[in-house]
């Protein structure tokens, strides 16, 4: 399934592009598909995202990591038009995307998935897939009334969907309701459906969350395949093993800002990253008492927040 010869060539190409790039936050890339400039999002007094500058290299797999609450998902929401940024701008293939609504972002070739899978459970797997196709004649109100006008296109779409379902091992589930799928299968369906859009950049929000370990390898393979087909992948993930395994480049966020960038092997040992994950004062693993103490601090903060909000 994953043709090994091409894998190495595409991966090599991606790695070659990153060769010799400095590991500083916001470093320019040779051929960026996405360029982000000073994006800020505040919720009341809380600044959830404050990204100064970041570029995503075309044809690579880039991981976006960071501790909980670092603003990764909010950042995703800004970029894909699901939430409006307070300040800043970003361009995809040179086209400005600030203020562009989510559906037009997707049409321009930048498609995302969600942390909590959004399989449309009362639609069949096949209907889910068909929904992803763009420029459907039958989605126009008046042409929908003349089945002859969209049947031909629908057959083409179905054929493409079947190929993808085959590849994602969901062909047997073709006519089942998406609601009957397992968590991992839903992730697969969501990814396959995103491919139906025909994206250039695929943005995956925690593709491995809640997936049965048996399916993890297969999902990893599918993500790698995206690069082989010439797509760019940007994904949010917590699982460091997975990040190390598949990503060509890693961007680290903490408290809304990008704090470090670099190849996966060097980034894991970066002191800024370790500080961000463990808190600045910990250079040794936490003891049980320390963990308890941190937990209590966090709870106190929570209560304070509740106080303040109400």
């Amino acid at each position: 399934m994953h043709a090994d010869t091409t894998v190495t060539s595409k991966k090599a190409a991606a790695l070659a592009a990153f060769e010799g790039i400095e590991t500083e936050p916001g470093v320019p890339k040779p051929d960026p598909i996405l360029v982000v400039e000073k994006v800020v999002r505040r919720f009341g007094g809380l600044t959830a995202v404050d990204v100064d500058h970041v570029e995503i290299q075309r044809g690579s797999i880039t991981a976006l990591i960071g501790p909980n609450g670092a603003g990764k998902t909010t950042f995703f929401n800004q970029l894909t038009g699901f939430d409006t940024a307070d300040e800043g701008s970003w361009s995809f293939n040179g086209k400005q995307l600030k203020g562009v609504p989510a559906h037009r972002v997707a049409r321009s070739g930048m498609v995302r998935t969600f942390q909590l899978t959004k399989a449309l459970s009362k639609l069949t797997v096949m209907e889910n897939m068909r929904l992803g196709a763009q420029n459907q004649r039958g989605e126009n109100f008046f042409r929908a009334l003349i089945p002859g006008s969209w049947r031909g296109q629908e057959d083409e779409i179905t054929e493409r969907a079947e190929e993808l379902l085959e590849r994602f091992k969901l062909a047997a589930k073709r006519d089942d309701f998406a609601g009957s799928l397992s968590g991992g299968q839903r992730k697969l369906l969501e990814m396959a459906r995103a491919l139906m859009v025909g994206p250039e950049l695929v943005m995956l929000d925690e593709p491995m969350a809640g997936v049965n370990p048996a399916l993890t390898q297969s999902l990893l393979g599918h993500v790698k395949d995206l690069r082989e087909e010439g797509m760019t992948v940007l994904f949010v993930e917590h699982d460091m093993d997975m990040v190390r395994d598949i990503s060509d480049w890693v961007i680290v966020m903490a408290q809304g800002a990008v704090i470090a960038e670099g190849p996966p092997d060097t980034i894991m040992s970066d002191s800024r990253v370790i500080d961000a994950y463990l808190g600045a004062h910990h250079d040794a693993p936490m003891s049980a008492e320390e963990a308890e103490e941190q937990l209590q601090e966090a709870e106190a903060e929570l209560e304070a927040e509740i106080e303040e909000k109400a």
Binding site: F82, P101, A102, V111, K122, R137, F141, V197
Partner: peptide
């Protein structure tokens, strides 16, 4: 028709539909 499919999908989860363009 595909029009109806979009409608039913919106009922399920409109963010998902938005993310599909």
């Amino acid at each position: 028709s595909p029009w109806g499919r979009v409608l039913k999908a919106i009922r399920e989860d409109e963010d998902a539909v938005r993310s599909l363009g």
